[in-house]
């Protein structure tokens, strides 16, 4: 674990330095660009990446499914519908409310998933099926919204779905911070319980875990982490899938190590994906969601072929 941690810290340090030094300055003072454009962007990448990775890591244990991601609970569909609706309607909202609407949609969708699955009383597979259903419903509604949208707003919706870290100032970071704390603290405190979920509901119960209550608590933590991140940066995929699996390969499946490493790994991946998104077609930017999807597709294939450890 120590070696993995050292590598991650080194990658994070180099990534921060490279990110601070990358990009055009224009006619602005370098200090201003670093302080109000690049540094908040780095912080946003780190907080969103850690949130999405930990959310995926938690869900893979609680749902006992290696392919679970933050969006398994219908989070991206819910956020997409509310964001799409706001963009289509042209309502002008204060910026915090715009972020919050994505988060609210995400959390509403995951709540719907929870109720459709019989409030977690049954096998976790019920939650996965309910999540698939909510995702399909959300995708259908979003398609309808896109069909009804004029071209300019359609582009805006599609662009939102690709994720975005471009930021001026610290508003988005400040928005995400309470969700990060509210989700990360219970997740980190429950790593021993997450280990118990790996052995199934019955073994966990027999060792004193109130699986219904703990599953709900951990699902809320995962939904809050992912919902906050989606509200702040859009539905960026694959971080919650790639990072926990990679960390599991490097440091084993004990959640007391895996969860903190996934948080750091998520931050590092997002940081470097953001750097690539800025340099690949410089001076223009490639949406970070595109970079991560290009990574995520082959990684899914790897999961199918290699069947890595859960």
């Amino acid at each position: 674990m120590k070696r993995t941690l050292l590598i991650l810290v080194a990658l994070a340090g180099i990534g921060i330095a490279v990110s601070l030094a990358t990009g055009p300055l224009g006619r602005n003072a370098p200090g201003q660009v670093i302080m109000y454009l690049r540094l908040p962007r780095i912080l946003l990448a780190i907080t969103a990446g850690a949130s999405l990775a930990v959310s995926g890591c938690v869900l893979q244990a609680v749902l006992r499914n290696p392919l679970a991601t933050p969006y398994t609970l219908g989070i991206s569909a819910g956020a997409g519908v509310t964001a799409g609706f706001i963009i289509l309607s042209g309502i002008s909202l204060p910026v915090f409310l715009v972020y919050l609407s994505g988060t609210a949609g995400a959390l509403a969708a995951s709540t719907l998933t929870w109720f459709l699955a019989g409030r977690g009383q049954r096998d976790p597979s019920g939650l996965i099926l309910a999540g698939v259903t909510v995702n399909l419903l959300g995708a259908s509604v979003l398609l309808l919204i896109e069909y009804m949208s004029p071209a300019s707003r359609l582009v805006e919706i599609i662009r939102w779905m690709m994720g975005d870290l471009a930021v001026a100032g610290y508003r988005r970071v400040l928005f995400l911070l309470p969700f990060l704390v509210a989700g990360m603290v219970p997740a980190l405190l429950k790593t021993g319980t997450l280990n118990q979920f790996l052995t199934g509901t019955e073994m966990a119960e027999s060792r004193g875990v109130n699986t219904v209550r703990e599953r709900l608590l951990l699902l809320i933590a995962a939904a809050v982490l992912a919902g906050g991140a989606v509200g702040a940066v859009g539905p960026i995929g694959f971080v919650g899938l790639i990072v926990p699996h990679t960390m599991r390969r490097l440091a084993g499946g004990d959640y007391r190590k895996l969860l903190p490493l996934s948080a750091i790994g998520g931050a590092v991946l997002m940081l470097w994906a953001d750097i690539f998104s800025r340099v690949v077609i410089s001076p223009a930017e490639l949406p970070i969601g595109v970079i991560l999807s290009l990574l995520g597709g082959p990684f899914f294939l790897y999961l199918l072929v290699k069947k890595p450890r859960l």
Binding site: K190, T191, N195, Q196, R207, G208, G252, G253, R309
Partner: peptide, 27 residues
């Protein structure tokens, strides 16, 4: 149980240590 899921990603001794859970705190 009859068919407990295999807690993959853990070694055998780590799996056995999960049985100590009721005797210590969750983290």
């Amino acid at each position: 149980p009859q068919f407990p899921p295999i807690p993959a990603g853990l070694t055998a001794v780590e799996t056995v240590l999960l049985g100590r859970f009721p005797h210590r705190s969750a983290w």
